[in-house]
């Protein structure tokens, strides 16, 4: 019939209109400050630094190798390497960053820093409540702001964090195990 589609559309919107007053399940929106949607595991926005143990600064996994700083495409990471070594979470002396700043106004959330980090020290966060009132000072995140515990990491990315922990544990077990005897030079090449 003529105008059938128009009427069908009008009834649909009318049904939505009245239905949304009767049936609360129709309303798909979440009233944000009061209620929050669960964070999506696969989402990411800005990097954070993982620490083990209880002390956010001493427990940082970062050894200040500067790879992420060099790889960062928009150059938003600034690291100042320490001159001395301090024991890390497992007690091994390591270099540590005296300053570790990320300018989140520049960061493009590409995750390359995470990909290149050999120590699983930097990971992507998905905390979206990052608004700030200071345009310059509040958007330059320092080491203190960036440090977040491994438990937090487990909380936001459970699968990924479990994998990372497994890999780290394997590496530590390997390091702790007695070193196997060095294999002899292959092919019996003459040694000078």
């Amino acid at each position: 019939m003529l105008g059938n589609g128009l009427l069908k559309g009008l009834t649909e919107t009318a049904r939505n209109f009245f239905g949304s007053y009767v049936d609360k399940d129709r309303l798909t929106t979440i009233q944000y400050p009061e209620e929050r949607a669960p964070r999506i595991e696969a989402s990411r926005n800005f990097p954070f630094l993982v620490y083990d143990g209880t002390d956010p600064q001493a427990g940082l996994r970062c050894v200040s190798c500067l790879i992420c700083e060099k790889e960062c495409p928009p150059k938003c990471i600034f690291i100042e390497k320490s001159t001395d070594k301090k024991p890390d979470a497992v007690g091994k002396p390591q270099f540590y960053p005296t300053r570790f700043n990320i300018d989140v106004s520049v960061c493009m959330s590409c995750q390359i820093c995470v990909e290149v980090c050999p120590f699983d020290a930097i990971k992507m966060d998905n905390d979206f409540e990052a608004s700030a009132t200071g345009r310059f000072s509040d958007l330059l995140w320092t080491k203190e702001r960036l440090a977040k515990s491994n438990e937090y990491y487990h909380h936001i990315h459970p699968t990924e964090a479990a994998d990372v922990d497994a890999v780290l544990a394997a590496a530590r077990a390997k390091a702790a195990a007695p070193r196997p005897p060095a294999p002899s030079a292959p092919g019996g090449a003459p040694e000078k």
Binding site: N16, F17, G19, S20, Y21, R26, L27, T28, T29, Q31
Partner: peptide
């Protein structure tokens, strides 16, 4: 508000 309700929003 009306448009919102038609789209099942508040």
């Amino acid at each position: 508000k009306g448009l919102g309700r038609m789209q099942n929003r508040y």
